[in-house]
Nucleic acid binder design. Structure first.
Length: 611
RNA sequence: GCGCCCGUAGCUCAGCAGGAUAGAGCGAGCGCCUCCUAAGCGCUAGGUCGGAGGUUCGAAUCCUCCCGGGCGCACCA
């Protein structure tokens, strides 16, 4: 896939220089709107109107005559103040006829932290958005040329983990038949909270919970946490999300990273212990210089009872991620479904080069914007504005369920496992109905079910609230994962049949084949050529929804191509097309298939060969 | 009250480093399987881009104010 806009921009700059105008740094070039002549166009003449003191249409004409020949451009068409370019279809098709290639490597390392769910109960659809978003962003960045490290923070010394373990111990009940361990822990956690709600129970149970908390901090109950964590990981892996390293909070505390971080901060003028007032005896961070406009800019790092706040631990983790602190040890944690190894921090491990990031992305919901700002402020407090500028909080809005906020207490939640089961069952029945001879219905059902769920979570802009509705999330029509998967399977089917006939879609195009390209092929080629830019934009934001939107456009262009008719007859048959044109179309279909596969992979959506 | 985010078609959403008659999907209506998978395609209907000012040759996009909704403002996170 080659860039057709770059030569065009270059030619425009050359023409501008010929006209004695300093070219802008970014020359706008966009596909021409439907119904307008040409394939691409630029509004450049409007921007020059002020400088040249001439009307845009006149500038467009002058610019047109000053242009050097542009590769593939058949005609330069002034359209009012726009200047459009009609391409030779053969050129567009040739430009699109190689599958997209990964981007060149970029310097530095990006650490993406996502999931980081409390190891105390099963995942629900709120967590799902985090996993889907984080995993997609990590994949997109890696494809876009960044070195990416995916970290999953395990808060094993938190209150919630302690409560689940306490509940398991207290009720002494075994998991139900076939009950996943995280669901079991979650069930007893909920039961504990019911009991805590009863009169006088809280005081009676509190010491027990505190005792568990102490043991967790000492790392004594790691195996108990692991049982829950392993069950959660099974869900993440089934979704297709994978990680490089698990970071246990107890390890971070044990390695003294927290104290090291606090020591660094205490050496700045912004962190101190007030001698009077409401914060007397606590260690606070005055963020006013970094976060203006707060009514109370003091943030407690260490409470007056000596315990550290979560934010303080988070700052320590952030410092570690960016190489300001060292000390964690690691060891292998096993191999994930794709074969990618997973590591974990561990007291008995050995040093490994995790962390040391030049940029960090935290995938975490918008309600935590303030503490995320504090992370940047802490970096700034150390004088590391450079690092602060490279920390991104990928804030996403919360997920509603049928219009109402999720609520564990009111039972208004859906677990991810439950959702997957439902989606796969639904896919299974659609396959049985539409393709009863499917060679592997179980595989396809899993792919379609997972794909529908994951796509639903990433197609919307992160900062918009998602209202999860069963009928929409499991929809297999329209703007949905299965629509893209279907387009992919359709292309795969043609390629399969071609190979059966002895044709090789990967073979070089025969001499003169490209010249047979029509407007149909050109339109499809243009859709394909937008892929690298969509990836680039998605990586830069970062957000997967831009790539998702482009893939929907590409699939729509491909489906339209597939269905094109003239006088009631198929206008664009592939396998039965005349020789030359057939090879050309086959090549395009193969690039469509590969581009969709790649794009879907970046969103974590499987691409079935048969549906 | 202060701060951040969101108001685009009946519903769910793209578009927002200013550019061409504002685009999809769902829903509604009409059509397309003797043709490579109809989970698809085509056509029709449907919009004061929350409102008012402003900047600009040009504003859904930038600025200000207002209205509506969400979230955050603990020695929680």
């Amino acid at each position: 896939m080659q860039d057709v806009k770059a030569p065009l921009r270059h030619a425009l700059k050359t023409a501008l220089q010929a006209l004695g105008v300093e070219p802008p740094t970014a020359v706008p070039v966009e596909p021409a709107p439907k119904g307008k002549p040409g394939d691409y166009g630029t509004p450049l003449p409007f921007q020059l109107a002020r400088i040249l003191k001439k009307p845009p249409p006149q500038i467009a004409k002058e610019l047109a005559s000053a242009l050097p020949p542009i590769p593939g451009v058949r005609e330069v068409i002034p359209v009012g103040g726009f200047l459009n370019f009609a391409y030779d279809p053969a050129y567009l098709v040739e430009a699109a006829s190689a599958p997209p290639a990964p981007f060149p490597r970029r310097p530095g390392k990006v650490v993406v932290e996502h999931t980081s769910v409390n190891p105390n109960k099963e995942l629900h659809i709120g967590h799902l958005r985090n996993v889907a978003l984080g995993d997609a962003v990590a994949r997109i960045l890696a494809y876009a040329g960044f070195e990416v490290e995916v970290e999953n923070y395990i808060d094993d010394t938190g209150r919630q983990a302690a409560e689940s373990l306490f509940a398991i111990d207290r009720y002494g009940e075994a998991p139900g038949e076939g009950e996943k361990y995280d669901h079991y822990a979650g069930r007893l956690y909920v039961r504990l909270h019911q009991e805590l709600g009863q009169e006088g129970k809280k005081a009676a149970l509190e010491p027990g919970i505190r005792a568990v908390l102490k043991r967790l901090e000492a790392g004594e109950l790691r195996n108990e946490i692991e049982k829950i964590l392993r069950a959660q990981l099974a869900t993440m892996w089934r979704l297709g999300a994978e990680y490089d390293v698990l970071l246990w909070e107890s390890d971070i505390v044990r390695e003294g990273l927290l104290n090291k971080a606090l020591r660094l901060l205490k050496a700045t003028p912004y962190v101190f212990e007030p001698e009077e007032g409401k914060y007397r005896g606590a260690l606070v961070f005055d963020t006013s210089r970094f976060i203006p406009g707060l009514e109370d800019p003091y943030l407690v790092l260490v409470r007056s009872d000596g315990t550290a706040t979560y934010t303080a631990k988070d700052i320590a983790l952030q410092f570690w991620k960016m190489g300001l602190l060292s000390g964690l040890k690691f060891r292998p944690y096993g191999t994930q479904p794709s074969g990618r190894p997973l590591f974990t921090s561990h007291p008995e491990g050995e040093p490994m080069p995790f962390g040391r990031a030049t940029a960090t992305i935290n995938v975490i919901d918008v309600r935590q914007s303030y503490p995320q700002q504090v992370l940047k402020a802490a970096l700034s407090a150390l004088g590391r504005e450079d690092l602060a500028a490279h920390h991104v909080h990928l804030a996403y809005e919360t997920v509603l369920l049928e219009g109402r906020p999720l609520s564990g207490r009111k039972g208004h939640v859906v677990s991810v496992d439950e959702l997957i089961q439902e989606a796969v069952a639904r896919a299974r029945s659609v396959i049985a109905e539409k393709n009863p001879d499917h060679p592997d219905p179980e595989l396809a059902a899993e792919q379609v079910g997972i794909g529908a769920i994951r796509f639903a979570m990433v197609k919307t802009e992160p900062r918009r609230q998602i209202d999860f509705r069963w009928d929409q999330a499991l929809s297999f029509e329209g703007d949905a994962g299965p629509y893209l998967q279907y387009a992919h399977a359709r292309a795969a089917s043609i390629l399969r049949k071609a190979r059966e006939k002895g044709l090789d879609p990967a073979a070089p195009l025969p001499e003169g084949a490209a010249a047979k390209a029509t407007a149909y092929e050109a339109a499809l080629a243009k859709a394909l050529l937008g892929f690298p830019e969509a990836v680039e934009k998605s990586a830069a934001e970062p957000t997967p929804h831009l790539l998702a939107a482009h893939l929907l456009d590409l699939a729509a262009a491909w489906n339209a191509y597939y269905n094109a008719k003239e006088n009631g007859q198929p206008a664009t048959p592939v396998l039965t097309a005349p020789e030359g044109l057939r090879e050309l179309r086959l090549r395009l279909v193969s690039v469509v298939k590969e581009t969709l596969r790649q794009g879907l992979a970046l969103l974590g959506v499987p691409a079935p060969e048969v549906m």
